[in-house]
Computed example of a mutant assay.
Amino acid sequence: MQSPFPARLKEARAIKGLTQLQLGLRLEMDANSASARMNQYEKGKHAPDYDTMKRMADELGVPVAYFFCETALDAQLIQQVSRLHEDAKNELLAQLIQNERSES
């Protein structure tokens, strides 16, 4: 199974309206290789290290976990949950646990 990372990266970059070069430059990659590096990441030929991935996520306004969501729905959920305040996250988690228990 292929990693969902390349498609999620491309999707997040497109949503932000950035070219591969623009994103690479924002990540302080060398101007001569930024576009090529981003292209290799989006094609799945190479994968960035975690620090680079974290900087990409921050620049694109998504959590790192977004890059590994297998479905579009999961990706949307991760984005929405990541934007919640900690109290709201805890409340949501408690509700989900309660729902799971009541369904068992």
Rank of each mutant, 00 (worst) to 15 (best):
Q40F: 09
L23W: 01
A14M: 12
K89M: 15
I78G: 02
Q2T: 06
S102Y: 05
D49I: 07
M38E: 07
P48Y: 07
A36T: 03
S35K: 03
N32F: 10
I97L: 15
Q20N: 09
K16R: 11
A7W: 02
A72Y: 08
D74E: 15
V81I: 04
F67Y: 06
E70A: 14
N99H: 14
A7M: 04
K54G: 06
P48N: 14
S102F: 09
L96I: 12
A36S: 08
R55W: 01
S82H: 13
L84R: 09
D30N: 05
R83V: 15
N90S: 14
M38V: 10
S35E: 10
L9E: 00
E86V: 09
S82T: 12
D74A: 15
C69A: 12
R8E: 00
A94K: 13
A36C: 07
D87N: 12
L23H: 04
I78T: 13
N32Y: 14
T52E: 00
E59C: 05
G61Q: 04
Q20D: 05
F68A: 15
D51Q: 13
E59A: 06
K45Y: 11
A34P: 01
L93A: 12
A7L: 04
V81S: 02
K43W: 06
E11D: 08
N39W: 02
Q22S: 10
